[in-house]
């Protein structure tokens, strides 16, 4: 007896799907039209948004390179008629003023953000601090300069430190608000995981919350630093004016790149214009280097670098 081999049923004809409606080109005319308009608008917006940035960079680099040279970094700032390119004092001034402001504002701001996000939460004190930080964000920078002028400069005179104080006041609310946002993004699951192991809250915050939020905290602080580094108004009457190097943070008047840009641009002389462009290029470069360095450090410290 032979084993009957099971026969396949006769192959049914393959269903032929009508796929024409799956093809994008078959969209109805109005939808196709809308799609094109929307795409065009989106592209136009991107170009419109990027154009100023590109123009600024191109112009600043093109014009600023004329001023670049050893003298730019080492020379004193010459008189406004001079064609010399020295800008060193303003570079040093910018570095020390911004650094001092960062050292004051970032730790304080991050600690305040930790308080708001981890301890104060929805309490009255936290709500008040949050409100005041909001108000502080809205204070015009020149008013911040006036404030420091009245409480510091009138008592102790102009100095890089006075300028740093004014910048720190500007940075503080930015650091607090962005920091709180970043800390709140850390999932409660992680907080609970840590606490359930018998960790004290302070240690939990140090070892879980802050490391998890570190990239965000850095971004927020960098925004504040970049903003402060480019400020002119609050420094006008807090750090004074000087044309020679003054690396002393606490004594003597000082100068920074934005002020030199302002002075140079207002001057009728060609050499001053060149110096202003050079100062602008140096300022952008400094902010860029800060940003890059901070990203690098964050990546190093980041808890999840193994991913």
């Amino acid at each position: 007896m032979s084993v009957e081999t099971p026969t396949r049923p006769a192959a049914a004809p393959l269903p032929t799907y009508d796929a024409t409606d799956l093809v994008g080109a078959r969209l109805s005319a109005p939808r196709r039209y809308k799609n094109r308009v929307a795409t065009a608008c989106v592209w136009a917006s991107v170009i419109l948004a990027l154009a100023p940035l590109a123009l600024v960079i191109v112009l600043v680099v093109k014009n600023g390179l004329d001023a670049m040279g050893v003298e730019f970094f080492t020379g004193n700032i010459p008189s406004t008629r001079s064609a010399a390119t020295g800008m060193g004092p303003a570079i040093v001034g910018t570095l020390i003023v911004t650094a001092a402001a960062t050292v004051m504002a970032v730790p304080l701001g991050v600690l305040a953000a930790i308080y708001l996000s981890e301890y104060g939460r929805d309490g009255k004190v936290a709500a008040t601090v949050r409100f005041l930080a909001g108000v502080m964000t809205g204070v015009p920078s020149i008013v911040m300069g006036l404030f420091v002028y009245t409480i510091w400069v009138l008592n102790f005179g102009q100095s890089a430190f006075a300028g740093a104080l004014a910048l720190a006041c500007l940075m503080l609310p930015v650091v607090i608000r962005s920091g709180e946002e970043m800390l709140r993004l850390v999932p409660d699951d992680l907080r609970n995981a840590s606490l359930a192991l018998g960790t004290r809250k302070s240690r939990m915050i140090r070892t879980v919350v802050v490391p998890s939020a570190l990239p965000g905290l850095t971004s927020g602080s960098l925004l504040a630093v970049a903003r402060a580094a480019g400020e002119t108004a609050p420094l006008l009457f807090t750090i004074g004016a000087i044309q020679t190097f003054n690396p002393n943070l606490f004594a003597g008047t000082n100068t920074v790149l934005p002020i030199q840009i302002y002075n140079g641009a207002l001057s009728p002389f060609e050499g001053a214009h060149t110096r202003a462009w050079g100062a602008a290029l140096a300022l952008i470069a400094i902010v860029l280097v800060f940003t890059f360095a901070a990203r690098l450090v964050t990546a190093r410290l980041s808890t999840d670098r193994h991913r």
Binding site: P187, D189, L190, N192, A193, S194, L195, A196, L197, G198, T199, R200, V208, P211, S212, T303, D304, H306
Partner: peptide, 21 residues
């Protein structure tokens, strides 16, 4: 309570490893 939690551990509904190694 912190000491209690060391003696009495807890595993949660959603896996919640720290973003560490």
């Amino acid at each position: 309570p912190v000491q209690v939690r060391r003696r009495i551990g807890m595993v949660f509904q959603r896996p919640n490893p720290f973003p560490k190694s």
